[in-house]
């Protein structure tokens, strides 16, 4: 469960990047976060994960305040950041074990998960190489695997599908659905409306730092009956907010 309460963020010398947003994502839900470039998605995710401090408002993850009890809160979620070029000098296997140690995952459990996920994402042959030698999509995959291996209750993913091949993208969606069905929370940003439609229980649409819609797609469609396609719907909401 993620509770975002009246959160705002102002970058120094800039307008409000995130302006008084409130969203509650319940257990067992997959919520998609969509909006135009520069709308404030990454900024919001950075605040949820403690990378940025909000100027106003409060964020709770499974009831734990990220600002007041950062360490406890961080154990509750795993993050796939928008920029996957991290730890390039480590080998894939070393990265996974580093992350697993951070989340205090047991040895036998992690070994089993690593083997399983490497199979699923076709990364077995790459684990022994440095991440520096990976392609863009492979880097994305290793970061995703890092989260899946630790399997925290809340998954927060910033554009996780970019660069993934159809197969891996499918596997990831499968895992996300599985995770949510076990009563956990998944929150991810995306620009692919079809993914949002097929996968999400709810979507949050953000524009110019404000939430312009939060709810199920059915509700959204009901609100704009003249829109036939998702694209039209999205443009309508963003432009006439």
């Amino acid at each position: 469960m993620i509770e975002i309460k009246h959160v705002s963020k102002v970058y120094p010398g800039n307008k409000k990047a995130v302006d008084d947003i409130s969203v509650t994502i319940n257990d067992g839900e997959i919520v998609g976060f969509i909006g135009p470039n520069g709308a404030g998605k990454t900024t919001t995710i950075k605040m949820i994960t403690g990378v940025l401090n909000p100027n106003e408002g409060q964020i709770l993850i499974n009831g734990i305040d990220i600002v007041k009890e950062p360490l406890k809160a961080k154990m509750e979620f795993g993050l796939v950041p928008d920029q996957a070029d991290i730890f390039l000098r480590l080998k894939g296997i070393e990265y996974l074990n580093f992350i697993a140690d951070m989340y205090e995952i047991d040895g036998s459990l992690r070994k089993q998960r690593i083997a399983q996920l490497a199979q699923a994402f076709e990364m077995s042959a790459a684990l022994n190489d440095k991440i520096l030698s990976y392609s863009h999509g492979m880097r994305q995959k290793i970061v995703i695997m890092g989260v899946l291996i630790c399997d925290p209750r809340v998954w927060i993913l910033d554009e996780p599908m970019t660069g993934l091949d159809p197969q891996s993208s499918f596997r990831l969606k499968e895992k996300m659905r599985e995770h949510a069905s076990r009563g956990n929370t998944v929150f991810f940003s995306t620009h692919v409306l079809e993914v949002a439609e097929k996968l999400c229980d709810k979507v949050a649409i953000i524009n110019h730092g404000r939430i312009v819609f939060f709810g199920t797609l059915e509700e959204l469609k009901a609100m704009h009956p003249n829109c036939t396609t998702l694209e039209e719907l999205f443009l309508e909401v963003v432009e006439h907010a």
Binding site: I93, E94, N97, A100, D101, M102, E104, I105, D106, G107, R110, K111, I114, A115
Partner: peptide
């Protein structure tokens, strides 16, 4: 793989 995947002190 087994050798690499031992739990360690943070």
């Amino acid at each position: 793989l087994s050798k690499a995947s031992r739990k360690g002190n943070k």
